[in-house]
Amino acid sequence: MSRVAKNPIALPAGVEVMLVANEVSVKGPLGTMKQMLSNDVVVQHEGEELLCKASNESAKADAMSGTIRALIANMVQGVTKGFERKLTLVGVGYRAQAVGDTLNLTLGFSHPVVYKVPVGVTVSTPTQTEVVLKSTNKQQVGQVAAEIRAFREPEPYKGKGVRYAEEVVKLKETKKK
């Protein structure tokens, strides 16, 4: 059995879980999320915990039990605390400005980059060089952060570009004569 699936998912106060056929829905203070289940996984609600078990002895069922357990645990955390990802803009003249559901970026191109943030993700810019993304969906926050970073990834000589706040860019030494 998957080592991840062996751990039960603790349900904090204020979180409701509905198990219907092949679907799990989690409702909490920040919203509701749903996840389709594989036929290889059985989810059991026992008291204040959820257990994910493989329905048969196949390797696929074993792998899916750990995957489904991780997805449901992320849903529980998403509807209680939410997820946040911070980006930093490094470079002279690099700026970000959040206007409604769009993010205007000045990244050294001849034109400004306008990124439309998808529904479910909120964007804020505490300073001109910081972007904060928040959502209840961990995958969606990570995808949006990766798309914004892809506009201008950090280059290896000066480190200019869009990077994650916790990212460390290893700089190369310049060419010598």
Score class of each variant (00 low, 15 high):
Ala73Gly: 00
Gly142Ile: 01
Val41Gly: 10
Gly47Gln: 08
Ala165Phe: 02
Ile68Phe: 12
Glu57His: 04
Ile9Ala: 00
Tyr164His: 03
Pro118Trp: 00
Phe109Lys: 04
Ala98His: 12
Lys27Phe: 06
Val90Leu: 08
Glu166Pro: 00
Val169Leu: 00
Leu107Arg: 13
Val24Thr: 07
Ser135Pro: 04
Gln97Leu: 10
Ser2Cys: 12
Tyr94Gly: 04
Val121Thr: 02
Val119Gln: 09
Lys158Leu: 15
Lys176Val: 14
Ala145Ser: 00
Tyr115Met: 12
Pro8Glu: 03
Ala150Ser: 15
Met33Val: 10
Ala54Thr: 03
Glu130Met: 09
Ile9Met: 01
Met75Leu: 05
Val144Glu: 02
Gly120Pro: 12
Val76Lys: 04
Thr127Asp: 12
Lys177Val: 07
Lys81Ser: 12
Tyr157Trp: 03
Ser55Leu: 08
Glu147Ala: 10
Gly159Asp: 05
Gly108Thr: 11
Glu16Phe: 08
Val15Gly: 13
Met36Leu: 13
Tyr94Asn: 03
Met75Glu: 03
Val90His: 11
Glu130His: 06
Gly142Trp: 02
Ala61Ser: 15
Val17Asp: 04
Ser55Glu: 11
Asn56Gly: 07
Tyr94Ile: 01
Glu46Cys: 06
Val20Ile: 07
Asn104Trp: 09
Gly161Thr: 00
Val42Arg: 10
Ser25Phe: 12
Ala70Gly: 04
Leu11Glu: 09
Thr125Lys: 04
Gly82Phe: 05
Val17Arg: 03
Val169Ala: 02
Thr125Trp: 07
Pro156Thr: 01
Ser110Gly: 04
Leu105Arg: 02
Gly78Trp: 08
Lys81Tyr: 05
Ser135Cys: 02
His45Ala: 14
Glu46Arg: 14
Arg149Asn: 03
Pro154Tyr: 07
Lys81Gln: 13
Glu16Val: 13
Arg69Ala: 14
Glu46Met: 10
Gly31Trp: 15
His111Lys: 14
Phe109Glu: 00
Val121Ser: 03
Asn74His: 10
Ala5Tyr: 14
Gln140Asn: 04
Gln77Pro: 00
Gln77Asp: 12
Glu57Phe: 06
Glu48Lys: 10
Asp62His: 11
Ser58Arg: 09
Thr80Trp: 09
Lys138Trp: 06
Leu11Lys: 08
Glu49Asp: 11
Asp101Trp: 08
Glu155Thr: 04
Leu50Arg: 12
Leu50Cys: 10
Tyr115Thr: 10
Glu57Tyr: 06
Pro8Arg: 12
Tyr115Ala: 13
Ile72Lys: 05
Val92His: 08
Glu166His: 01
Lys116Ser: 12
Tyr94Cys: 01
Tyr115Glu: 15
Val169Tyr: 01
Gln44Gly: 05
His111Leu: 07
Lys34Ile: 10
Lys53Ile: 09
Ala73Met: 02
Val132Phe: 02
Lys53Asn: 08
Val24Met: 06
Val15Cys: 11
Val123Asn: 02
Leu133Ile: 01
Lys158Arg: 15
Gly161His: 02
Ala96His: 09
Met33Tyr: 07
Leu133Gly: 01
Thr67Lys: 15
Glu16Ala: 14
Arg149Ala: 06
Ile9Arg: 00
Val42Ser: 09
Ala10Glu: 15
Ala61Lys: 13
Glu130Asp: 10
Met1Cys: 09
Asp40Phe: 14
Pro112Cys: 05
Thr32Phe: 03
Ser38Thr: 07
Glu155Met: 11
